[in-house]
């Protein structure tokens, strides 16, 4: 086994560029999944089954099919329908949509964990529905679910390399490009492997600290 440090230093500038794109996709994808997931949860609580049923079927379908194929679908099919986005935007949308079907379950559990007394108190105070949600239920529910949402952020981080297949140059894409240009596969691939382990380990430490603060 040969290890060439000059290849590592040659790859580092590319790694930073890739890391930037990875983090960009991660942050935007997380925000989208948090928002969409909440929308799905609230729709699943709609009184009409004509709303609940389609939302349930679609989210179940998205959750049980590979993100990779969904990426291909969005990347190749949307332009056929006349919708053209950049590769990164498509990737962010795919990741956000895919993980929103996970976060919706997290939110649901969080909302169900809010004690019934809170709902009753809101009714007793004659709070309107919107205010009950925004001022009473959601603040308590979201506080509870932050650690679980954080786990999905880490899972999303580990799915960002998939964006490589739709030409986004994130970390793995950069590593592959570098490997093919210099014909050195070992160093860049190992470096990003270590980078992923480090980032997700740091993120999990951060999350544990956050959990201690929020869940008392």
């Amino acid at each position: 086994m040969k290890w060439d440090w000059s290849a590592v230093s040659g790859f580092l500038p590319q790694l930073w560029d890739g890391l930037l794109v990875t983090l960009q996709a991660l942050v935007l994808g997380s925000l989208l999944s948090f928002t969409l997931g909440l929308v799905w949860t609230l729709l699943m609580r709609a009184p009409s089954r004509w709303v609940r049923w389609p939302v349930g079927v679609v989210t179940e379908f998205v959750r049980n099919t590979p993100l990779l194929v969904q990426l291909f679908f969005l990347f190749y099919v949307l332009p056929e329908w006349g919708l053209t986005f950049s590769a990164l935007a498509t990737g962010v949308f795919a990741i956000g949509l895919h993980y929103s079907t996970y976060t919706m379950q997290v939110y649901r559990a969080g909302i169900e964990a809010v004690p019934v007394g809170q709902w009753e108190a809101a009714t007793a105070l004659n709070l309107p529905r919107s205010r009950t949600w925004t001022a009473v239920i959601l603040p308590q529910a979201i506080r509870r679910v932050v650690p679980a949402l954080g786990n999905y952020v880490i899972a999303m981080l580990k799915d960002t390399p998939l964006l490589m297949v739709i030409t986004v140059l994130e970390m793995l894409g950069r590593a592959r490009l570098f490997s093919q240009q210099h014909f050195q596969f070992t160093e860049p691939l190992t470096v990003i492997g270590v980078a992923f382990i480090l980032i997700s380990y740091l993120a999990s430490l951060l999350l544990r600290a956050l959990e201690r603060r929020l869940v008392r």
């Binding site: 040969k2 390399p161 793995l172 596969f185 070992t186 691939l189 992923f196 382990i197 380990y201």
Partner: peptide
Amino acid sequence: TEVFRGTSALVMIFWVFFVLPVAF
């Protein structure tokens, strides 16, 4: 557990396909 859970499955696949043959 930390190492294999920490890294991405796709990165691991790349590693097995490209680094294992060259390195070992």
